[in-house]
Write a protein that binds this DNA or RNA. Structure first.
Length: 399
RNA sequence: GGGAUUAUGGUGUAACGGUUAGCACAGCACUCUGUGGAAGUGCGGGCGAGAGUUCAAUUCUCUCUAAUCCCC
């Protein structure tokens, strides 16, 4: 269940509360990525210390770990000490999401084969790739589903299998199985892929409808696609938005500097009263822009991945720990994160990155995850007191 | 004192009588957006010294120097 608590007057930002069987999520919320049902480098008992509200895991990556005989999780048992497969693995009791595996259609196949990210980089443009032969050899996409052939491992994923797996995993919020296209794909391909994604969306919905008569608590989010094409984005938002999903994901790839434009044309077509999740986005500037346009949650690997690579986030921007070898000062002045509470200084953490990498990465991850969660808390507070725009301007000018 | 072996960037190493001496780690810079990511890309930096053979020597020979080991 989702309830909007406060709407910002001058923007589309809003605060809300998303109630799940495993707890509530105050929105806008940052969803921390736990692909394999663990936040990399963190122990289960660390998670609570980071004020993480919700975590997202991945159906494709957990596939191997899901026992064949595992029954579909029944949320009626939630409060009787029975934990979902996901929560057992995570070792922590909290709201969870699972991605359907749709993104792996892009990242494992196209993205890897063509060395392209889902967002075209600055300086990169379509002309750069104009003469490049687009490869799709490791995955085959048909209307029936997607064949993966990754390093000799053959797999097949379709709406039925994705839904079944996600039901077994037992996340509170699950996503429809979609096809994430590449920023290099043309209009024609995107149109075809979009129609397929829309058919799959209806399929996922009907599969879940049967089950939800017994247990209505696992929420299903549909995903808006359409690539870089305005007309397709609008079409998708209208179509997906008209279906009885519990919430909506905005996914796919974006051209350079196009994400904000995409949000502005997509969100007005989504039902106001339902939650919106921006998939895979989470740089600080993007967070503010997304919230400003009415996004309630997003997830991104940036806080965790970059922590492992030594990048530390602060409200004055980010820095690399390796450039702070002689600075015997805190990671961030006045920071109340679990690492800073232990007086981990910059020089100390830099030394740890050489002497004991896993421990260093744990502290860096603790800091960054806490930082992003705290940022969201401050954003929520600013919306509640009607000063989101001021807060955004002030924060962004400081980084 | 006698003998043996070795000598290649900051460190550990590879190859070779002939274009630009390869790799790993460390260093520096940059990158990271539904995590194949303790990752990736780029940059800087080297043939112990001297002589000889040769069209050509980091490579072969000799001397020196240094290190390691063995013998007395």
């Amino acid at each position: 269940m989702f309830k909007i608590l406060k709407k910002d007057k001058s923007t589309n930002a809003r605060t809300g509360i998303l109630i799940t069987p495993h707890g509530k999520i105050l929105t806008p919320a940052y969803t921390i990525v736990a692909t394999h049902a663990e936040i990399k480098c963190l122990k289960p008992q660390d998670i609570a210390k980071t004020n993480t509200q919700v975590v997202i895991s991945n159906t494709y990556h957990l596939w191997n770990f899901v026992p064949k005989q595992l029954p579909i999780y029944n949320f009626k048992f939630t409060n009787k000490n029975k934990k979902t497969f996901l929560l057992n693995k995570l070792g922590s009791n909290m709201p969870t999401m699972t991605d359907s595996g749709g993104f792996q259609v892009f990242s494992l196949g196209f993205g890897k084969e063509n060395k392209v990210g889902k967002i075209l980089k600055n300086g990169a443009n379509l002309r750069m790739y104009a003469n490049q032969q687009i490869k799709r050899q490791q995955i085959k996409i048909t209307d029936k589903g997607v064949f993966f052939n990754i390093d000799g491992q053959r797999r097949f994923l379709n709406p039925e299998i994705s839904m079944k797996l996600q039901e077994k995993l037992g996340a509170d919020i699950i996503f429809a199985f979609d096809e994430c296209t590449s920023p290099l794909d043309d209009f024609k391909y995107n149109k075809k892929a979009l129609e397929r994604t829309h058919r799959w969306a209806k399929k996922c919905l009907s599969l879940m409808a049967n089950r939800q008569s017994q247990d209505k608590q696992q929420m299903l989010f549909g995903i808006v696609q359409g690539g870089r094409f305005k007309s397709l984005r609008v079409k998708s938002a209208k179509f997906i938005g008209s279906l009885p999903f519990d919430g909506f994901g905005i996914g796919g790839s974006f051209g350079q500097n196009e994400m904000l434009k995409t949000l502005k044309i997509v969100i007005p077509h989504l039902p106001e009263e339902k939650p919106r999740h921006l998939l895979g986005i989470g740089k600080i500037r993007d967070v503010f822009n997304a919230v400003e346009n009415g996004v309630d949650s997003f997830d991104c690997v940036i806080p965790t991945r970059e922590a492992r690579h030594g990048r530390i986030y602060t409200r004055h921007g980010h820095y690399n720990i390796s450039k702070n070898r002689n600075k015997n000062i805190s990671l961030e002045k006045g920071c109340k994160c679990p690492a800073c509470k232990l007086n981990i200084s910059r020089s100390k953490l830099n030394a740890l990155f050489k002497a004991d990498l896993p421990r260093a990465q744990r502290f860096a991850t603790l800091h960054n995850v806490w930082f992003f969660n705290n940022l969201m808390k401050n954003i929520r507070a600013s919306i509640d007191r009607g000063s989101f725009k001021t807060f955004k301007k002030k924060f962004l000018s400081g980084i």
